[in-house]
């Protein structure tokens, strides 16, 4: 639905040139939530502004629904922008207007008649859960409520795409989750395509279908969130994965623990995808004459299932242990025996 071809943005100053976005190519599907993650300075903020041409690209094309945004003249561009919603890190609400008036603003711009405007605003207020706060000013709202106004405002003209510029970065974790949930609902119920940029892996994990990792103006890795999560290739991606998984924990005193076992086997189980939801550990314990104790582990949820590692100690008869391990290996879970006692 959105095609980005050879997109570049070069800033020239007297002393140097900066390739904020460097020959970027992406294909974003209709109805998906596409995340772009990168550290500050990676060019993700410039990238999202190139999509609705708040910044003009130096080279390349942005094609939304077959329409080449980069080729549009000023007036046409204005009309196209009305079909691209955008929300911001700092909400960017007009403090001089109430919630209701803020949400009505894009409708005023689009020339919607007053009566229709009022009905539409009522709908939107209900949609984002701000009923009862219609006449409050932004200064009277919490951060989460402000972002809800931002979202309602962005949805007012029934956009084809919603751009989220670090939409949750100024919010506390709990509020972040409630805003992310709202975005998931909108994506599901309205079938709206969402492009979001963030520096928080947590956000990607929670709501994105696909992700692109940006560094120095380029996409270094992209794909299904779970794939990128479980097989990070580049250094940046590994770092982002550590954000949610914690540091590499192999040596977290596990060595000493392992030495302490006189019998059985220590195995590492790598979970990727849906199986984690099945009761693997308990079914193994029921099927075979083994005792399983969990030594260490971290499992995290993405939209396509879980991902993570468990370190377990399997004790019992050698033959039973081997059978149990073979059984686990027959599931999509990867098994790695780290220590034979």
């Amino acid at each position: 639905m959105i095609t980005i071809k050879n997109l570049s943005k070069i800033y020239r100053t007297k002393s140097n040139t900066i390739n904020a976005v460097n020959d970027l190519n992406l294909e974003i599907e209709k109805g998906e939530i596409f995340g772009v993650i990168g550290y500050s300075g990676a060019g993700k903020s410039t990238f999202i502004r190139l999509i609705n041409r708040l910044e003009d690209p130096t080279e390349g094309q942005v094609i939304i629904d077959g329409e080449d945004i980069t080729a549009l003249k000023k007036n046409k561009l204005r009309l196209s922008r009305q079909e691209i919603g955008m929300i911001f890190q700092h909400f960017n609400l007009l403090w001089s207007r109430t919630v209701r008036e803020n949400i009505a603003f894009p409708l005023e711009i689009a020339g919607v008649p007053k009566q229709t405007r009022r009905e539409r605003v009522d709908e939107l207020i209900k949609l984002v859960g701000l009923t009862g706060r219609e006449n409050a000013y932004p200064s009277e709202l919490s951060g989460g409520q402000k972002q809800r106004v931002g979202i309602a405002r962005a949805l007012a003209n029934d956009p084809k795409v919603l751009l989220c510029d670090e939409a949750t970065s100024a919010l506390d974790p709990e509020t972040t989750d409630s805003i992310l949930k709202l975005l998931i609902d909108i994506n599901k119920n309205l079938g709206l395509t969402i492009i979001l940029i963030t520096h928080e892996m947590h956000v990607i994990r929670k709501i994105c279908h696909r992700v692109a990792v940006m560094e120095a103006g380029q996409v270094v890795e992209q794909g299904e969130v779970l794939d990128v999560f479980s097989h990070p290739k580049s250094q940046v991606t590994k770092k982002f994965v550590e954000q949610v998984m914690g540091e590499n924990q192999q040596d977290d005193g596990l060595g000493d623990v392992i030495e302490g076992f006189a019998t059985g086997k220590i195995t590492k189980l790598h979970f990727v995808g849906e199986v984690t939801n099945q009761a693997l550990i308990s079914s193994v314990a029921k099927k075979y004459q083994v005792d399983i104790s969990i030594l260490q582990g971290k499992i995290t949820q993405t939209r396509k299932g879980a991902y993570g590692t468990l370190v377990v100690h399997i004790d019992g008869d050698d033959e039973e242990i081997n059978k149990a391990i073979d059984y686990i290996a027959s599931t999509p879970v990867e098994v790695e025996v780290v220590h034979h006692a």
């Binding site: 609705n52 561009l77 204005r78 922008r81 955008m86 711009i109 405002r153």
Partner: peptide
């Protein structure tokens, strides 16, 4: 940011 938001709305 508010001016940018208005631009993004097609004002």
């Amino acid at each position: 940011g508010v001016v940018e938001a208005a631009k993004a709305m097609g004002a």
